[in-house]
Design a protein around this nucleic acid. Structure first.
Length: 666
DNA sequence: GCAAGGTC
């Protein structure tokens, strides 16, 4: 008897299908799907795990957060507990008949560790002697047959590399999270957290915020001329931004009443616009973010669509369709969906090769539709499904052709420029129709032509501060800095929300986040370099050039030094975070006395808004006791109390003013 | 009640 252990159910199903030649029985052991078949007179069982089935934790004596055992916690060996009881039960059943075990988890660091977790677990149930490893980088007929005909040994060094990450992340995360929460008195559900990935990510937002705060806008002027040839169009003075007001006024005064513009030069260019490349998780989330959908929500929806079999696996780095992908088959299915018009267009007028992105991996194909939903989708599911279908179709469509025109013109000796844009053949652009084109066409012009100047204006303007991140651009930046993985980045961002470290629209850090990052500014854990170094160490462990124990010990020693320094600065850190906390708690001004209104916890742990002018001012407002509350910097038109934003489970967030008796509530 | 990484 053979037992094949895969990383996840979908791999188990596909691998069983390939190994059996399609003749496979779907059974269940406990709650877990298992794939059974006969091959060369032997029974094979294939089971999928659920990623990691073991999680790390500290012994119960560290259950309560205390400042005085933090140094002890640094060097404490975490214990391992089974986090997937159902899977463990199924494995226990399956190893009863002493099968030969083949580990067929994903062939990467975490996959090796997941495999070793399974081995350690089953060894506790039965002393299995024969354990082998199947290594493959994609679940195709060729790779799987090859891997199972040439079985390898389990690579324990690779799994140790993964273990070092687990232990280091837990030690730094737990110790610093406890430290920062305890010194600032933010324990319970409002605790603060620190981690190797979340903190450098938060630091990116804090740095950006500081640039924006530091930014002083500079005033400039520009001169625009409205011209006419059949239609109106705009041109701007070639200097663009004038920094000198006298200079711009002089020029403006001289030409403001001129009525003629001479076309000096017309430059026409035809452009080929390449369609976008296939979606991997990062580019998918960037597109999602453009549609103003939170990335973590999009990942949950993508998961739902994948489980119901309408899209492919959503966690992938790959942007190149594998040759084995049945593009024609998918197009045919889509031509019988609500995208029939677009699909038929693509079928009749396809580009020779689909587009391809820079990243090519073989573990999973890029995200693409696999079938048409048979059940009705929710509105959000429909939006995401549509995005994935349109992207897929776009990658198979012909290039768009457009024309840009750059015109130089002269108004009484002053040079102006105008530019126009015209789409000639839209092709993929009409299918992947998410971008609004801001550039406009201009009329057909010839050199030497004289046009009517309708109006010349000069405008004062200001330079703009750096743009804030969107969830999409933040995820792209994280990827560049190697922070997190395709599967975790959106979760990291939603963690920052739930810690009240960041606010939505605009995506910016709260005062507490700024204080926490400031407190940690000299510490490696807020820098992307910590991850880069960990990666190097993990490679050394995998190559057997460094041990797991030495690596973790080194890291723990560094953490000990960090804690010693932090303890020296404890009072300052405490004051800074407390001040930030006060600032974050201000919801606006009291309409009765003008002092700050803050969130207060009553003696029986009920929250309410009270005036800092107490006891002179006793103004208070009740708050909803459940859900999240954030400030808006706006006040109610009719009652003048601050407007707050309420986020309640299962409901759309809404804004309301604090006064329950306000006219606006009727 | 800590992290980050898998996956449902």
């Amino acid at each position: 008897m053979k037992l094949v252990i895969c990383e996840k159910n979908i791999s188990a199903r596909n691998i069983a299908y390939i190994l059996s030649g399609g003749n496979v029985k779907n059974i269940r052991i406990g709650k877990t799907p298992v794939y059974e078949f006969k091959k060369d007179d032997e029974i094979w069982n294939v089971i999928g795990l659920r990623g990691h089935i073991i999680s790390l934790d500290y012994p119960s004596k560290f259950k309560w957060w205390k400042e005085d055992n933090l140094k002890e916690l640094i060097n404490e060996e975490p214990c391992r507990i089974v986090s997937e009881k159902d899977i463990a039960f199924s494995l226990k059943n399956l190893v009863n008949n002493n099968p030969d075990v083949i580990i067929a988890t994903d062939y990467d660091r975490e996959g090796e560790l997941i495999g070793v977790e399974a081995i350690n677990l089953i060894k506790g149930y039965n002393d299995i002697k024969k354990i082998k490893r199947a290594k493959f980088s994609s679940i195709t007929n060729f790779e799987i047959s090859n891997a199972f005909n040439n079985l390898n040994e389990v690579d324990y060094n690779l799994s140790y590399a993964g273990e070092s990450r687990q232990e280091i992340d837990l030690a730094w995360g737990a110790v610093l999270t406890r430290f920062i929460s305890l010194v600032s008195n933010k324990t319970g559900k409002d605790f603060l957290s620190i981690g190797r990935v979340q903190s450098p990510t938060l630091a990116l937002l804090v740095e950006k915020e500081k640039e924006i705060i530091k930014f002083t806008p500079k005033t400039f002027w520009k001169i625009n001329a409205k011209l006419k040839k059949d239609e109106l169009f705009d041109s701007t003075h070639i200097e663009g931004q004038f920094w000198d007001e006298d200079k711009v006024k002089k020029i403006f005064d001289r030409i403001k009443d001129k009525k003629e513009a001479i076309i000096k030069k017309v430059d026409k260019k035809t452009n080929i616009e390449y369609p976008p490349s296939p979606f991997n998780t990062t580019s998918f989330l960037q597109a999602v973010s453009y549609l103003r959908i939170p990335t973590s929500k999009a990942m949950i929806i993508a998961e739902e669509l994948y489980i119901s079999g309408v899209i492919s696996y959503p966690r992938t780095d790959n942007t190149v369709y594998p040759n084995s992908l049945n593009i024609e088959g998918i197009l045919k299915k889509l031509s019988e969906s609500r995208f029939s018009k677009e699909s038929n267009e693509v079928i009749q007028n396809r580009r020779q090769y689909p587009t391809r992105g820079k990243k090519k991996t073989t573990d999973h194909p890029p995200i693409h539709p696999v079938s048409v939903p048979t059940k009705r989708l929710t509105v959000d599911q429909e939006t995401i499904y549509e995005l994935i279908c349109r992207r897929f179709l776009a990658t198979l469509s012909k290039d768009a052709i457009s024309e840009t025109v750059d015109v130089s013109l002269d108004i009484s000796g002053e040079k102006f420029k105008a530019s126009g844009y015209r789409l000639i053949e839209s092709n993929w652009k009409s299918i992947y129709n998410y971008f609004k084109e801001k550039r406009k066409p201009i009329p057909e012009l010839k050199e030497g032509e004289i046009l009517n100047v309708i109006k010349i204006i000069f405008k004062k303007d200001q330079t703009k501060p750096p743009q804030r991140y969107t969830e999409g651009s933040l995820i792209t930046t994280m990827e560049k800095l190697l922070l997190g993985t395709k599967s975790t980045r959106s979760e990291v961002i939603s963690k920052l929300y739930s810690r009240k470290y960041i606010t939505k629209s605009p995506l910016s850090p709260t005062p507490i986040a700024i204080a926490v990052i400031d407190a940690m500014q000299d510490c490696d854990v807020v820098k992307p370099e910590m991850t880069a170094r960990l990666e190097q160490d993990m490679n050394l462990i995998a190559e057997n050039k460094k041990t797991l124990e030495d690596t973790v010990k080194e890291s723990r020693d560094m953490l000990t030094n960090v804690i010693l320094t932090l303890e020296k600065n404890k009072v300052k850190i405490k004051t800074n975070i407390n001040n930030a906390n006060l600032e974050q708690n201000i919801y606006g001004k009291c309409p009765k006395c003008g002092k700050d209104l803050i969130e207060i916890l009553s003696r029986n742990k009920k929250r309410f808004i009270g005036c800092t002018g107490y006891p002179n001012c006793t103004n208070t407002y009740p708050l909803p006791q459940k859900g999240g509350i954030s400030k808006t910097d706006r006040i109610c038109e009719s009652c003048k109390t601050p407007i707050i934003r309420v986020i309640s489970k299962g409901k759309k967030p809404w804004n309301m003013c604090l006064d329950m008796k306000c006219e606006s509530k009727k």
